[in-house]
Design a protein around this nucleic acid. Structure first.
Length: 480
RNA sequence: CGGGAUGUAGCGUAGUCUGGUUAGCGCACCUGCUUUGGGAGCAGGGGGUCGGAGGUUCGAAUCCUCUCAUCCCGACCA
């Protein structure tokens, strides 16, 4: 048991903060609500970026960079958008030693500037679709910040596309949702539920919002990514028009979609334990660490360390990257070095000492279960990739089972209240209520609608709240 | 932004109520020796604007005012 981490059973929030601190993922910045992502945390973000960026390119998107500062008047052009974002915008009023004629907002999201640019770039149906993504940070002034989950400035990716038809734009929003789902499941081992947001939970300015919802190990829900079908709302506000094949001028249909560094919070709260971080191998910047051990200095320097580097080179070649490290912290004793990597969530530890040297093998220890095995040097290049995949699969399976076990079906409000109070987790219900009904349920139980899962798109039943027939199946939960 | 709590070395804390030597201790850090396969032992050592700013007082970590930050519970959101 780690002595520098509060057990999650004792205080979940404190556990989360301790894991971040001990794992050296992030630290507080001098400004309230802002965080510094430290090298260990940023390396995870870089892994996340790599997989998502590759998938965006694979689906035909290109990267660009739009400015941080946006004229305040832009925000006001779309009524719902301004209502949703104005309260959390940071505004620049002075620059160059003078008061600005028009204040500038620091982007809370970029629909408006990008819409402005798209209107300049798009003339003809031949200019469509336009498929651009940007990796950047945005600022939303948060009342209650939490490291990674909700900070005033956060790193994210925002894709913005414009299309000639409604169908194509909806398909884009759904395609990107599926891209998100696939990467979260396959790489981050986050078993997400994808679905549609209710009206009350929709993005300000969207006609429809899709979401990836995931369950944390305290049974609360976390939105890990969203994709929006924006209809013609922004096209009309920013005059994104094109001349169609028939010669008519038409407004384009736009989408936007994003995932943020919040996913690192999701990773922590899904997989980590009371000893610290547990990082799924595919997203782990360091997938295995070789720890040379010996009290015999000449043996250590002449045989063990060279062998460690040789194995590292071999394994990196097999894994296709700089994923295996050799631990050279010889001022620390072996136990300290084991703990160091354990707490940073490195999926596999490879011990190389005199015994292993003798037997031409490695002591292999997996982070998730602590299970130990011995593997011959000659077998490690096939055994390690296989073990990493095993760990990846077992983390996903465990998280998936956890969600299934903590998902409850109820039919009445009384049952709903009882389950939320006594068990928590996800609640599946048929729901046909309004925005106001949702608010009432939240006031009563603390739970909100997370989404209408696409999985149950065609199922209908009687609403647990209003009693109306023909209601869609929805998931409710307490959420971050 | 409302309610509650907390700020003393990198981390955890004693001291604060009842003002009074040089602010004490554990972990971590530095040096040396002995150690070394799941958080080592001994000896020596370095590190503090007591969150910050004012004030009261002969004297403030301690009392008063203001302020900043963090945590928890709400309202608002990736």
């Amino acid at each position: 048991m780690a002595k520098n981490i509060t057990p999650k059973e004792q205080d979940y929030s404190q556990w989360y903060l301790d894991v971040i601190k001990v794992g050296e993922l992030a630290d507080y910045a001098p400004v309230r609500g802002c965080m510094v992502i430290r090298p260990t945390g940023f390396a995870i973000w870089e892994m996340i970026q790599k997989y998502f960026d590759d998938a965006f390119k694979e689906t035909g998107h290109v990267n660009a960079s739009f400015p941080l500062l946006i004229p305040q008047s832009f925000l006001a052009k779309e009524a719902e958008h301004v209502e949703g974002f104005a309260p959390e915008c940071a505004v620049v009023t002075h620059a160059g030693g003078e008061e600005l004629e028009e204040p500038l907002i620091i982007r809370p999201t970029s629909e408006t500037v990008i819409g402005h640019m798209y209107s300049k770039w798009i003339q003809s149906w031949r200019d469509l679709p336009i498929l651009i993504n940007q990796w950047c940070s945005v600022v939303r002034w948060e009342k209650r910040p939490r490291l990674f989950l909700r900070t005033s400035e956060f790193l994210w990716q925002e894709g913005h596309t414009a299309h000639a038809t409604k169908e194509e734009a909806i398909e884009e929003a759904e395609t990107m949702l599926e891209v998100y789902r696939r990467i979260m499941v396959d790489y981050l081992a986050l078993p997400v539920v994808i679905g549609e947001k209710t009206e009350g939970e929709r993005f300000p300015g969207a006609d429809n919002t899709y979401t990836c919802e995931t369950m944390m190990s305290d049974k609360k829900a976390l939105q890990a990514g969203t994709s929006h079908y924006l209809g013609q709302n922004f096209a009309k506000a920013f005059e994104i028009q094109f001349q169609d094949k028939d010669g008519e001028m038409r407004f384009a249909y736009t989408t936007s979609w994003g995932v943020s560094a919040r996913m690192i919070g999701a990773l922590i709260m899904t997989h980590s334990d009371n000893d610290g971080l547990v990082i799924p191998p595919r997203i782990a910047p360091t997938k295995a660490v070789i720890i040379p051990i010996s009290t015999n200095e000449s043996k250590l320097n002449d045989e063990i360390i060279p062998k460690a580097h040789e194995l590292k080179a071999l394994l990196n070649k097999v894994l296709g990257g700089r994923y295996v490290q050799v631990d050279t912290q010889f001022h620390m004793r072996p136990g300290d070095r084991f703990f160091y990597h354990l707490q940073k969530g490195v999926p596999v530890r490879l011990e190389l000492g005199e015994k292993e040297l003798e037997g031409q093998k490695l002591r292999v220890v997996r982070r998730d279960t602590g299970e130990k095995t011995d593997v011959l040097w000659s077998d490690i290049e096939t055994a390690l990739p296989k073990l990493l995949e095993d760990i990846q699969n077992s983390l996903l399976e465990r998280a998936h089972n956890f969600r299934i076990e903590n998902t409850h079906k109820v039919a009445t409000l009384d049952e709903f209240k009882k389950v939320i109070e006594e068990q928590g987790g996800f609640i599946e219900v048929y729901f046909a209520g309004t925005k106001e009904d949702e608010k009432a349920i939240k006031d009563l139980t603390g739970a909100t609608s997370r989404c209408y899962p696409l999985e149950y798109e065609n199922e209908r039943g009687k609403c647990f709240y209003t009693g109306k027939e023909g209601a869609r199946k929805s998931i409710f939960a307490k959420a971050y």
